[in-house]
Nucleic acid binder design. Structure first.
Lengths: 120, 120
DNA sequence: AAGATGTATTGACGAACTTCAATCTATCGG
DNA sequence: CCGATAGATTGAAGTTCGTCAATACATCTT
């Protein structure tokens, strides 16, 4: 008896399906997830690792020899990273020397950190 | 034979294709990218946002009403987050009250931050 | 000019991801 | 027990992503 009453009262009290207001706008959620998606692939992470390491420039064949994918795939991922502004390249003769744009990487990291802070 | 010699000499001059040693193991790159992929979807980010906000628990219908997807899709993303250990739920009667596992979220954030540090 | 070479692009294919209607399961109220 | 309801699961469809052979392009060497 007592239990039943408590149950009923708890449900009313709990008020299921109370709308919860988001702290992030849907636009912010999309920005955050897009930022994460950019590096959510091991090959892109490895490319960034290889580039970040050589202060100088690295050509595509250097990358290819250090990665588990073929040249067109390397070029594909390089394009994604370049279009996102995270890396860039300088062409010298036949070779394309790629490098990390440090300030862009820093900015990406900061945005991701801010996203986590908003969640925490 | 002549060709081989010429090839070798040209390459020497330009010094292309110098092997670059990775700082991250391929396993670490996969861990990092998998961590990022977990939140590389706006709906999962929004779910986490909604849960992180209510200190108490949130039922699935609360989430559904605040998200741009239907109930089975909400359940699907909840499952991914739960299997990753980021959230959990407590069933009370008909309702399932979900909540963020703060320490898991903190650990995820720390791993991601460490990944960026390795890249920087 | 012709051939060789590094890189980019194209096109196609398969794999993985996202979504939802339909259905199933478990629980509650009567 | 029966009808109603919250949530999970299934299965199918559409979409995006990752990969690579083939090819195109640009530049170098001869």
């Amino acid at each position: 008896m007592k239990q039943v009453i408590e149950l009923v009262e708890r449900k009313r009290g709990v008020a299921c399906c109370t709308p919860v207001a988001p702290r992030l706008t849907s636009g912010a959620a999309e920005q955050f997830s897009a930022d994460l998606a950019l590096l959510a692939h091991p090959v892109r992470v490895q490319i960034l690792d290889l580039l970040a390491q050589s202060e100088g420039q690295v050509c595509v064949c250097d990358l290819e020899s250090g990665l588990p994918v073929k040249q067109p795939t390397v070029s594909h991922h390089l394009r994604l990273l370049r279009e996102a502004g995270l890396i860039d390249c300088e062409k010298q003769g036949l070779w394309a020397y790629y490098f990390v744009k440090r300030e862009a990487l820093t900015a990406l990291r900061a945005r991701i950190d801010a996203g986590f802070q908003a969640l925490g």
